[in-house]
Write a protein that binds this DNA or RNA. Sequence first.
RNA 1: GGAGGGAUGGCAGAGCGGCCGAAUGCGAGGCUCUUGAAAAGCCUUGAGGGGCAACCCUCCGUGGGUUCAAAUCCCACUCCCUCCGCCA
Length: 428
Amino acid sequence: MLDVRRLRTDLEATKAALARKGADPTVLDIAAALDARVRDLSARRDDVRARIKALSKEVGAAHRHGEEDKAEALAAESRALGEEERALSGEADAADERLREILLTTPNTPAADAPEGLTADDNVVVRTVGFDPGGYGEHQRVPHWDIGNDLGILDLERGAKLSGSMFVMFRKQGAGLVRALCQLALDRNADAFEEIRPPTLVRTETMVSTGHLPKFEEEAYHLERDDLWAIPTAEVPLTSLARDEILDEADLPLRLMAYTPCFRREAGSAGRDTRGLLRVHEFDKVEILALATEQQAPALHEELVERATGTLEALGLAYRVVDLAAGDLSFSAARCFDIEIYAPGCDLWLEASSVSWFGEFQARRANLRYRPATGGGTTMAHTLNGSALAVPRVWAALVETHRQPDGSVRIPEVLRPYMRGAETIGRS
RNA sequence: GGAGGGAUGGCAGAGCGGCCGAAUGCGAGGCUCUUGAAAAGCCUUGAGGGGCAACCCUCCGUGGGUUCAAAUCCCACUCCCUCCGCCA
């Protein structure tokens, strides 16, 4: 949520920033007008309330002194003011609610250094690592769905039978590989991140805090009977962990990680990239996240990128880091580096992690603050997060990259301890 | 699912419809005393909003209601605890 104060002091600049993201900046004019109206109405309402409170005290005093006539006269006066208070209050609340609706559905503004541009074509490739376009053998040019089928480690038909298309089922070492990847990602970040196992069904407020509601209701699975939402990412519960709390600056940055399933309806992308593991409704992911001060945020953002890419490198995958253009940033993000891995069998760059910095945007929704060590008032925290490892696409790139001429898949050494020592996945 | 009890500031915990944004204790911060520390004493210490300011308003789990006036009375809901039942 944007800070309303920016609309008072910096309206034009904020509109310009929103326009960089490709959003319609005129909503901010409406918001600014509503804000002025709210302040005017509530000031008048507060004034009436102050008079009612003062009168009420006088009524009490009159009763104590046995001046019943005076008390009744004052009470009548106060009653009349009550009408006025209700009217002003109603108008103020209505305006405030409309303002809040606008604010909740208005995206974050991009960071100043986010690349200019409105589409993915404007994204900037920061670096590419381990990619040799001419260096892939024919045996690596087999898509993972064929490899998975051949080795009996990926059963797409059964997944679809159970739950529908875009639900997948791993078998044998394919299932083990899922677990191994997650365990690896957790272990690699355990030096600095507290492991959390949060609930994966959450309340509406929890989804609102991270920006996944109200605007993207169609994207999430909703259990109507209990009014709970299946999390699309562990970012949702982890960010809300400290909702409505005031942290001490000494506790920041708070680094958290979680291994959870993630559920996405993918309503807006029906039919796109749907083969194999490219886009699925349910998948496992290890998320790393930090709650921080504004000063800590930039270094943490880089650190999260380093941690995510470090794991991909250890797995022997080629990847590139992409600085997202302002217009390609997600709703809540101010700056985001996408990490894409190369899948030689599909010949596609697959988005494997979005390492995002949200500024105060999510914290304001979550009312997540800290008390500066120097004293003074509370300050909104900054939030950052990214996938340490998202299973399906890494699984896909991994089996394609490490496929051997004999059709087996070589297991990268870092994974072997988690795969009961196995060195390859072959037909069994 | 059934029965009962509860929800108040960082924590514990009091609170007759008006003198309650809230006693008291702990914790935290500052000062005095001290060579230093401890102890003791004194003072300060919730969040949010509006206003140049004086100052005003909101918040005692959430939402409604009664009243001139609600932490306090009424209704609904949520959450927590205890016991019973069921259960991986």
